[in-house]
Structure formats: structure tokens, C-alpha cells
């Protein structure tokens, strides 16, 4: 069974929203990036979204773009991200990892070769932001053959007419982009997300994961009341950037980012307890 399915089944049984951390692979360098990944499960992260850096991340805001620039400046590559994942899997067999990125490095690597290599390295899903359902056939078939879920995006602009196309072939979970905008932008209102999720639930049994614009414990907890899981990315990588600016040594960067992730995870995990209380 795919680790993503296992984790969401478990979360559902416990009536608990999940928390996912997004980190760019190789940010700020390979060694620190690996240490950050290893620290995530213990911080309470239910699954990891591992960014494959790209020179032109059009759907991302300044924080994640800067993370990609840092990683690439330290020699990151798609192959390097798969190496990181393989290293991570030596110690962790349980935490799902979704590889997230842009089409060109994957296309250049070769869709079929990538799907096999990603599965072998220990990935559970793949989300390519600029490969909409109309263009992802080749990758989708290869990924499914390799046992990877193809994660699809739904957005506030995904209307009822379009939703079936998005859901066709979608696996693992549906990633709901809570705002019309780029990563790290202003947060969506809790109520509008709740309404959107309730509409999406009528179309799919997949778990609904919400990301974009969630930057602190309060906004994460608010969204977690109605989502099956929430993702925080820009705020975490911005933390890395701030610590680097202050010349923080790598070990402390890992410690502080993990502490922030742990705090976010607690807020998310407890969101429904509070709602009930």
C-alpha cells in the first residue's frame, strides 16, 4: 500500500487533520537539506512535500523562488533530490514523500525514467505544477505503473465543468490551492476554504489537502478544521532564509526550522479538539 494512503487512513481513523511540510530539496545545501528532512517526522510532520528546484518557478512566490536559487547555487539537481530522498529512506520507511516541482527538469530527465527512479528512491507521489491533466498523460501512466500517486491541483477557479478533468487519474489526495495567487501570498478566509472543500467532497473521495498562503499556527489551525491536511511551505523556507541571513550554523538552522514545524504540527493536530471544546 502506498504510504500516502496508509497515513490518510490512519488520520481518518483518529479524526485528526494532517500536517505537511514543504521543503526545497538541496536548500540551502545538500547536507543541511538532508538533516532538515530527517528532522521532520519527529517534529510531527505527517508527510513531506519535497521540492525539485527549478530556475523559473512561475507558480511560486519570492520565498520558494529564493530557496530554489539557493539550492541550485549549491549544485542541486533533480538527480540530487532523488539522492537526498534515498538517503532519507535509509532511516525512515513510514513518512510519505511527494516530489513537487515543474515540468521541464522532469521532461528532460524523461518521464518514464523519472517515475521509475523516483519510486526506487522512495517517493510516494508526484505533483508537477505546470502539467495539467491535458498534458500529463505520459508521466501519469509511467507514475502509476511505478506505484506513485499523481497528485492534482484544484483551485478556486476550478469550476464544476472542469473538476471531472482534474479528478480523472488523480491519486493520493487532491491538493487545494486556497487562493488565486502564488505560494506565500495572503491567506484565504477560513469560511471560503470550508465552502470550497465541501463542494470538492461531493466530487471525490480523495483526502483534501490545502496549501498556499498558510504561514503560521493560527492560519494552519483555522484551515485544519475543514481540511484533511494542511501544507506549509513558504513560511518554513523563509525561516531558513532568515536564519541564513543571521549566519546561523547549519545545526541550529535544522533545530529552529524543526521547532517551527513542530509548533505548526501541534496547532494542526489539535485544531479539531479545540473546535469541539
Amino acid at each position: 500500500m502506498n504510504r500516502i494512503d496508509t497515513v490518510f487512513a490512519d488520520l481518518k481513523k483518529r479524526n485528526r487533520p494532517g500536517f505537511s511540510a514543504f521543503l526545497t530539496g538541496g536548500d540551502p545545501d545538500a547536507a543541511t537539506s538532508l538533516a532538515l528532512l530527517k528532522a521532520m517526522p519527529e517534529a510531527g510532520v505527517d508527510f513531506i512535500e519535497l521540492g525539485m528546484p527549478f530556475s523559473d518557478p512561475m507558480a511560486d512566490g519570492p520565498a520558494i523562488q529564493a530557496a530554489d536559487v539557493r539550492a541550485l547555487a549549491h549544485g542541486a539537481s533533480l538527480k540530487g533530490v532523488l539522492d537526498l530522498l534515498r538517503e532519507f529512506r535509509r532511516e525512515n520507511a513510514a513518512t510519505p514523500v511527494v516530489l513537487m516541482g515543474y515540468a521541464n527538469p522532469v521532461y528532460r530527465f524523461g518521464y518514464a525514467k523519472f517515475a521509475e527512479a523516483a519510486a526506487r528512491a522512495g517517493a510516494d507521489g508526484v505533483l508537477v505544477v505546470d502539467l495539467p491533466p491535458e498534458e500529463d498523460g505520459e508521466l501519469r501512466r509511467a507514475a502509476q505503473k511505478a506505484g506513485l500517486h499523481v497528485i492534482r491541483l484544484a483551485t478556486p477557479t476550478t469550476n464544476d465543468a472542469r473538476l471531472p478533468a482534474v479528478l480523472d487519474g488523480a491519486g493520493g489526495f487532491l491538493y487545494y490551492v486556497s487562493i488565486t495567487g502564488i505560494t506565500g501570498a495572503a491567506a484565504a478566509a477560513e469560511e471560503s476554504v470550508r465552502q470550497a472543500l465541501s463542494r470538492l467532497r461531493q466530487g471525490t473521495p480523495l483526502p483534501l489537502v490545502v496549501g498556499f498562503g498558510i504561514k503560521d499556527e493560527a492560519s494552519a489551525a483555522a484551515i485544519a478544521k475543514s481540511a484533511d491536511a494542511v501544507v506549509v511551505g513558504s513560511a518554513l523556507v523563509q525561516k531558513i532564509a532568515d536564519l541564513l541571513d543571521r549566519k546561523t550554523p547549519p545545526a541550529q538552522i535544522v533545530e529552529k526550522v524543526a521547532a517551527f514545524a513542530a509548533s505548526l504540527a501541534r496547532a494542526v493536530h489539535g485544531a479539531r479538539d479545540k473546535a469541539a471544546a
Partner: peptide, 22 residues
């Protein structure tokens, strides 16, 4: 119909933009 010239072209955009370009 999907914007392809042979293997080239297409619509490689994030889902947020898909309804707009359609």
C-alpha cells in the same frame, strides 16, 4: 484542438490559469 503543433505547443500551466486560458 489542444494547441499542439506536432509534439510542440500545448498548455503547460498551473491549474489556476487553466480555466482562464480556456
Amino acid at each position: 484542438a489542444n494547441g499542439h503543433f506536432g509534439m510542440f505547443g500545448g498548455r503547460y500551466v498551473a491549474e489556476t490559469l487553466m480555466p482562464l486560458i480556456l
